[in-house]
Write a protein that binds this DNA or RNA. Structure first.
Lengths: 144, 144
DNA sequence: GATATTATTGTTATTTATTCTCAATAAAAA
DNA sequence: TTTTTATTGAGAATAAATAACAATAATATC
């Protein structure tokens, strides 16, 4: 399987964009994190490692990673976006607690069939999907 | 079937909150709109009808409507939330174009079974779910 | 390899959705 | 009728994300 970097470089070349060390550092850091991340955390971690990338560059890089299928948006909670990498990961969905924000990942219904149906029915080129179930975890339910 | 207003008043009483004309006006307007809406549009429509409610009150009311199951968040695009009312509407999902933002509603896999499985497996009290498939519509695909 | 072109970067300013503050008001309880 | 306190509106504050712009550096061209 091709590495994230390779996938990204291919995408860069295909789109006529430029290969820069900043983008590569950001991408490496994204894949060094396991689990969900947000712009601020990513920025702090890069800084902690001595990387000199600005937040602006992160904001500019993430849409590219999304567009080439390396990461996806998970949810918009706490007033900002959270992301996860999906390249090389098994498909899964999220169960989110509305109280404490805890997220459980679960395997669930496969969506390939649905995506194909929608593609033909509506003439769409499908890029992905998002299934989130939400409610209150045991603790938060009791706390209410 | 109980009206939206009744559902809301029950909720208000149960939670020990107060019944106010502002909340009622906002709720009426929400259900007068068919289709998706956002805070700004809702505010303008209320104003256009001479209602004197502030945006702050809308921001305060929507979470209550969500909590009692009358509306739900649809997506966070264009930098703000979009909502829809769900009380009295058939369950459905969304197919969203990443280019122009068009949204197609589609009937799809029922989620009750899944919700129950998750409730028992993780000890959650499930409040709802969200399935969105996204990609590019015919027009936007060609435009690229 | 040197030069020209232009995408990308970092800094800073800007935008804008949402939340917060607080005094005034009014709904419900006593 | 009086008291209590949740709610409101206005405006200030917050913060995520975007835009502007000059400086830099990646790629193409010679």
């Amino acid at each position: 399987m091709r590495s994230e970097i390779q996938v990204f470089q291919d995408y860069i070349r295909r789109r006529g964009l430029r290969r820069t060390p900043e983008r590569e550092q950001i991408l490496r850091e994204v894949f060094a994190i396991h689990g969900h991340f947000d712009v601020d955390g990513l920025y702090l971690q890069l800084r902690a490692k001595g990387a000199k990338v600005s937040k602006a560059s992160i904001y500019r890089a993430l849409p590219l990673f999304i567009d080439c299928g390396l990461i996806r948006e998970v949810d918009f909670t706490d007033g900002h976006w959270h992301y996860e990498h999906i390249y090389g990961h098994a498909q899964h969905h999220h169960l989110r607690c509305l109280g404490c924000g805890e997220i459980q990942e679960f395997q669930g219904p496969a969506m390939q069939g649905l995506e194909e149906q929608l593609a033909t029915a509506y003439g769409y080129q499908i890029k992905g999907h998002q299934l989130e179930v939400h409610g209150y975890c045991t603790n938060c339910r009791d706390a209410k």
